[in-house]
Computed example of a mutant assay.
Amino acid sequence: MLITDTAQADGYYRALLERAEEYNGIFFVGVRTTGVFCIASCRARKPKRENVEFHSSFKSALDAGFRPCKICRPTENAHAAPPAVAQVMAWLRADPQSRITDRWLRQNGIRPEPLRRWFVQHHGMSFHAFQRMLRINAALQELKRGRSATQVAFDSGYDSLSGFAYTYKKLTGSAPSDPARLILLHRFTTPLGPMLACATEQGICLLEFADRRMLETEFKDLQRLLKARIIAGENAHTRQVEREIGEYFAGSRQQFDVALETPGSAFQRSVWQSLRTLDYGSTHSYQSLAERIGRPSAVRAVAAANGANRIAIIVPCHRVLGKDGALTGYGGGLARKQWLLEHERGPSDSTFRLEA
Rank of each mutant, 00 (worst) to 15 (best):
I3K: 04
T4P: 00
D5S: 09
D5I: 02
T6R: 15
Q8L: 11
A9E: 04
D10K: 13
D10Y: 05
L17C: 12
E21G: 03
N24S: 03
I26N: 13
F27Q: 09
V29Q: 05
V31A: 07
V31F: 02
V31T: 04
T33D: 09
I39R: 15
A40P: 00
S41C: 07
R43P: 01
R45Q: 14
K46E: 04
K48E: 12
K48Y: 04
V52E: 00
F54Y: 06
S60W: 04
A61V: 06
A61C: 07
A64C: 09
G65C: 01
P68D: 00
K70E: 00
I71P: 00
R73G: 01
R73L: 07
N77C: 00
H79V: 02
A80E: 06
P82Q: 10
Q87A: 04
Q87F: 01
L92Q: 10
R93Y: 11
A94C: 09
D95T: 08
P96Q: 04
I100W: 10
D102C: 10
D102T: 13
N108P: 00
I110S: 01
R111E: 14
P112W: 13
P112D: 12
P114H: 10
A129L: 03
A129Q: 11
Q131H: 09
L134Y: 07
K144N: 12
A149V: 11
Q151E: 15
A153E: 02
D155T: 07
S156Q: 12
G157Y: 06
Y158F: 15
D159I: 05
S160D: 03
L161A: 13
F164I: 01
T167M: 12
Y168Q: 05
G173R: 06
A175K: 13
S177R: 14
A180I: 05
L182R: 02
L185N: 15
H186P: 00
F188R: 03
T190G: 00
T190C: 00
L192V: 12
L192W: 03
G193E: 10
M195V: 08
L196G: 07
A199S: 12
A199F: 04
A199E: 05
G203N: 01
I204F: 06
L207K: 05
A210T: 10
D221L: 15
L222T: 09
L222M: 11
L225V: 09
L226W: 04
N235F: 02
N235V: 00
T238A: 11
R239P: 03
R243C: 08
Q254L: 08
D257E: 14
V258F: 06
A259D: 08
E261H: 12
P263T: 09
A266T: 14
S270A: 15
R276I: 05
R276Q: 11
D279W: 06
D279A: 15
S282M: 06
T283R: 15
H284K: 08
L289F: 01
E291V: 01
E291H: 09
R292E: 05
R292T: 11
G294P: 02
R295H: 13
A298M: 12
V299E: 13
V299M: 11
V302I: 07
A305E: 02
G307Q: 14
A308V: 02
A308D: 12
I311F: 03
I311R: 06
V315H: 01
V320C: 02
V320T: 04
D324M: 11
D324R: 13
L327H: 07
L327A: 08
Y330F: 12
Y330N: 01
G333K: 03
L340R: 01
G346F: 09
T351C: 09
L354W: 06
L354H: 04
L354C: 04
E355Q: 14
A356W: 12
